[in-house]
């Protein structure tokens, strides 16, 4: 299910004194099955963009097409997207409300009109996907730890088995282990279910580690799109858009100021760096 966006402009409260332009002429395409990361400073339009993909906002001008569903300024009913696109909003645990974890996760599937039996099956599966132990199903979601609450909330979205999963800052406030576990699970599930994942994040490290396509927004415009290895090595231009290089890229740059021949610039994670340095070291040892 490809996502195609053409000349998308969104103006909040158009024609009033509070008018505010959030997106201007955005063109982009996210191929089916991608792990896409959307990055940009606060106020760059990231949230407005994903709300369009989720069918929660309509374009003021331009259009978007998700699979065979097209949405433009005159579209009456964008609810057809709801079962296909799942959105995990910021701090999704604030939206937990049911008496038990199982009931909370079942809320979405039951709303889609599935039988209690099928909903139940999906609850079990979604809990397994996010790595929540079965015995937590009958617990109150409010007595889970912070990391477990986050996973329960994500399970509630996954239980609807969306083709496209949108995650808005899914790891904010989690500790490093919790962060890594959650995104590893999502990456694994994306391959297993051939799902498209769209990650909105302020963490360049996360975007570098998980995404295979990167989209940079700046003041409501898409300024760049491409492979993480190409975009994260642009140096000063990133700073101009309020972004920074991943730590690994910075370290490679420092090394390459002295090293001849230089290391490849496309090393984005600590694992990449380790391999490249060890390889060079071994090479030097055996002439």
């Amino acid at each position: 299910m490809d996502i195609v966006i053409q000349k998308l402009t969104h103006v909040y409260m158009e024609g009033t004194p509070f008018e505010q332009r959030a997106l201007t002429g955005v063109d982009l395409r996210i191929p089916s099955g991608s792990f896409a990361a959307i990055i940009g400073a606060t106020g760059s339009g990231k949230s407005t963009l994903i709300q369009h993909i989720a069918g929660l906002l309509k374009p003021s001008r331009g259009w978007l097409r998700i699979g065979n569903i097209e949405i433009g300024p005159d579209t009456r009913d964008s609810s057809r997207l709801r079962g296909k696109v799942g959105v995990v909003f910021q701090y999704p645990e604030h939206q937990l409300f049911e008496e038990t974890v199982a009931k909370d996760i079942a809320f979405g599937p039951l709303n889609l009109g599935l039988s209690a039996l099928e909903a139940n099956r999906r609850v079990e599966r979604a809990m397994e996907w996010v790595g929540l132990p079965r015995e937590l199903a009958s617990r109150s979601p409010f007595h889970l730890s912070g990391g477990q609450m986050r996973r329960a909330a994500v399970a509630g979205v996954l239980a609807m088995e969306p083709d496209i999963l949108v995650l808005d800052e899914p790891t904010a406030g989690l500790d490093p282990v919790g962060r890594r576990q959650l995104l590893d699970r999502i990456a694994w599930l994306r391959r297993k279910r051939a799902m498209t994942v769209i990650l909105v994040s302020h963490s360049m490290e996360e975007a570098a580690r998980y995404a295979d396509r990167l989209y940079i927004l700046h003041r409501g415009r898409k300024v760049m799109e491409g492979l993480p290895a190409d975009l994260f090595t642009m140096g000063d231009r990133l700073a101009k858009w309020g972004l920074e290089e991943p730590e690994a890229v910075r370290l490679v740059r420092c090394l390459n100021e002295r090293l001849n021949p230089p290391l490849p610039e496309s090393l984005l994670t600590v694992e990449d760096l380790e391999e490249a340095i060890v390889a060079r070291w071994e090479e030097g040892k055996s002439p």
Binding site: V177, E247, L251, L273, E274, I277, V278
Partner: peptide, 19 residues
């Protein structure tokens, strides 16, 4: 469960590989 700085993590990994 703290995150170590990249330099520290890389140092540990290189040491483990025998550098």
């Amino acid at each position: 469960s703290l995150e170590v700085p990249l330099a520290v993590e890389l140092k540990n990994r290189l040491r483990e590989r025998g550098l």
